[in-house]
Amino acid sequence: MSERKIRVLVAKPGLDGHDRGAKVVARALRDAGMEVIYTGLRQTPEMIAEAALQEDVDVIGLSILSGAHMALVPRILELLKANAQEHVKVFIGGIIPDEDVPRLLHLGVVGVYGPGALSTTYIADIRKAVL
């Protein structure tokens, strides 16, 4: 058996159009040897769940700057569950108010990262969660 590759879906749900952060993260994960499926801007939760299923990813990285995370994230987790993909680990990056972080973690999100987070941190966290 060849070496196991970590497959990550990087997606931007919702309507904000700023994808610099998502692209930087995608690049960092690639440089860490992962296979990154980049889906681009303005994805609906349904599109994200569908892509995660077709691509059989281990991890979903969501970039959310719009403030709509408490609406989008529960919906995505719900759809993953409906597709029997509860095993997929969800990470969030972007602008998330401190008080929402425990709520997201409680929902099942594995990690939440704000501006200034180091790539070494989330790369290590992804490896730990998956392997």
Binding site: M34, E35, Y38
Partner: peptide, 10 residues
């Protein structure tokens, strides 16, 4: 690095 960015879905 052995990694890849797969962007065709865009």
């Amino acid at each position: 690095t052995g990694g890849a960015i797969l962007g065709d879905r865009i």
